[in-house]
Every structure is written in structure tokens, then in C-alpha cells.
Amino acid sequence: MLVTAVLSGLVLGGTYALLAMGLTLQYGIARIMNLAYGELIIVAAFLSYALFTYAGISPVWALLIALPGGFVLGYAIYGLLMAPLVRRARNAASLEIDSILTTFGLLFVIQGLLLVTFGANFTSYSYLNDAVQIFGTRLAANRLLALVLAVVLGAAIYLVLTRTLWGTALRAVAVAPGSAPLVGIDVERAARMAFALGGALAAAGGVVISMYQTFTATSGVVFTMKALIIVIMGGVGNILGALSAGLLLGLAETMVATYVDPGLTLATTYGLFLAVLLWRPTGLFGRAVR
């Protein structure tokens, strides 16, 4: 039972880490809290569901649509909605209120569209639902695939950010937005790219989640919250922090669900969040971007 729980926890944690990496890119680099982040996840989940149910297309192929789709959507959201606000903002407080209201608006619009299209029911589909034998226990194949996909995508984004010039520029903006222009980095372009990459990760996360979890048109906000909690726990802008905190949260939730009560997972998330905020407000792994 313990091995099963740990494996399930890693699957969930891997997905969370993927989601949180996307949000930490958006929030850490563009410095805008995208409250509609979870809605992007759910859009991708429904996309995957629709493709599988109506066209028989496997979620792995859906990823090939979701990744560029999420990228374009993130790019467009920043370019059309956020950039004008950033340009006109005279101080941080003003930008904060404006961006909170705008992304709230976006949250409602996307959620409304999903409700109109797919209704309010719990949705899921059955893909690769056979159990595989692993470490002496049985795990659904879709979960195993989810974990593999999360690891591959996570590793890819990590390598892009740490090994390419382009990724280094993005991280430079996260660390010192004021000084980045001095070394020739276009901060607005970096923010747009971060939003686009974040969108791609959210979409990928959505496809991965849809493979093994039920979801509804309104569950986006819970994902936003969890992703943000992980981001804060890991330290804003810290990719490895997001990864570790995501795994930690996934494990903690699964443990509580297995050994205590499945109804208390959110309380666990929340308890962890509070503990971290009170104990180390800059995150478990500091604020530095590694």
C-alpha cells in the first residue's frame, strides 16, 4: 500500500510540478499573477477529452496540439491584455489591481465558455486504464505515462532555461528585472515569452491531468491555487523549487488521501501553504533562481 501511495503521489506531484513551473515562469518573469492560469489547464483537459472521445485521438497526440496551442494562447493573452496594462501602469499597486481584475475577467469568460460547451458535469475518459506491474505493485498505465510525460516535459523546459542563451535571458529577468535591459534584454519580449511558455506548460499539464483525473469546467481555480501555492513554497521564479515543492505536495496529498481521508486533501495543501508562509515567507528554497 505504501509503494502504491508513493507512486501515485509521484504521479500527482509530477503533474503539479509541471503546472507550477508554468506559473512560476509567468509570475516570476512577467510579474503578473495570472488568475486564469487554471482555466488554461482545464481548456486543454477538455480538448484532450474531446479529441479522444469524439475522434479517437490519443492524448499523446493531443499534446502536440496542446503545447503549441497553449504557447499561442499565452502569447496572445500577454500581448493583447497584459502588455497594454503594463505599459500604462504608473505604479505596482495600480498594475496589481488592473491585472487581478483582468485575469479574473478572463477566468470568468473561459469558464463560461466551457460551461456552455461542455456543461457542468464531472468529465473523464478511459485511456490506457490497464494496470501495469511495477515495484511489486499495480499502477494504471495512464498514470505511469503521465509521470513519464511530466518528467520529459519538465526536464526539457529545465534544460532550455539553463542551457540556452534564451533561457538564461529569461532567468535574468526573473532575478533582476531592473538590470536586465542594461545587458540588452528586451524585458517585454521576455515577459511575453514567459507567458507563452507558461501557457504551453499549463496546456501540457491539462492534457496529462485529463488522462487520470476527473475534472469539471469549474475546477480551474483549484489548480491555479495549488500551482500558486507550489510556486510560493518553491520560491517565486525558482524552477527547481517548483519541481521539489510540486512533488512534495503531490506526495503529501496522496498520503493524506490514502491514510487519512480523501476529503481532506485540500486542507493538507492549505496547511502546508500556511506553514511555509509563516515559517519561511520566501519559500522553502529561497528566492534565488537556479
Binding site: T102, F104, G105, F108, V109, G112
Partner: peptide, 14 residues
């Protein structure tokens, strides 16, 4: 379409 309109109102106001 309530929540769609609500969202659009939020964005428009900003």
C-alpha cells in the same frame, strides 16, 4: 452566458 458577460465586463472596465 452570465459568467462570460460578467468576465467581459470586468475586462472592459479595466
Amino acid at each position: 452566458h452570465y459568467s462570460i458577460i460578467l468576465g467581459l465586463i470586468f475586462i472592459t472596465i479595466v
